[in-house]
Amino acid sequence: MPKLAEQIKDAAKKLLAEQKVDLVVGFAEGSLPLRGTPLFARTPEEADKLTWNLGCENNLANYLRKKPGKVAVVAKGCDVRAIIALVKENQINRDDLYIIGVPCSGMIDRKKTAALLDDEDILAIEESGDTVVIKSNNSSATAKVADLLHNSCRDCSYGNPVIYDELVGELLPEKEAADFTEINDFEAKSVAERRAFMNSEFSKCIRCYACRNACPLCYCEECFVDCNQPEWIGKSAYNTEDNILFQVVRVFHCAGRCVDCGACERACPMGINLRLLTRKLVKDVKELYNAEAGVNMEDKPALATFTVDDPEAFLLKE
């Protein structure tokens, strides 16, 4: 990781010094243990703050829309998938974007690290190869990075950026796509059980919209929840039905566009299992259209194209 950080720094400084780009979006060391935080570097000096660690979990594609000038981005696999989806939707001009691709084997979930130390205040997390040492005031624990990954990272088979202008580090061995066990289990539940699960999850929602704002594909100028004429949805948070409506509409709007980066779930302060919904749509789109969003520059977004042999089970008995 420190080596990658140096390579990222060098690449960024070079781009800025040679004035190939006006801005580099990457990660700096954050203020919490093993936490990367988005950084916007406009000079080689500012680029000196760039880093790379197991806490660079934000999807930086979120910051690239409508940025003036030439922009470079430090992008892991899921960032690149989101960039591709945004390029296809005319939100990013590929010619104005320089992608510093970083192969990524996953970011760690601080909730999982905290759970290892009984939710004590984590004071330090030290990386050492494929393990991390987690320290609190009174105790410490060593764990495999692979066991601490975000679920989205655990399931991700696109850690290698699928497009880039420059690659930093070595490409990782191909990883097989994860199955949809959690989704299958959820689908196997009865309607009443699924409803009960939704009610229990979304009673936690505080409507802070962190999920929506963290999602690189959620970029409507006016989100339907913010519209009050007509008022599509109740504005009050006491109604779980409205919380569910918000999320279900959001997820459906991302159908065929969602790159399964898990940014929504990571952003949620209330720990709602949002990815169960987003991944259900990922599964449906994969099964119905054999499509995945943002995995190459060529495919049209699943819902923006039509072929005569598209399944029409929702319409016709097949």
Partner: peptide
């Protein structure tokens, strides 16, 4: 403000 996502997590908490 540049990295702020504009969500309400900080204010609501």
């Amino acid at each position: 403000h540049e990295k702020c996502l504009g969500c309400g997590a900080c204010t609501y908490l």
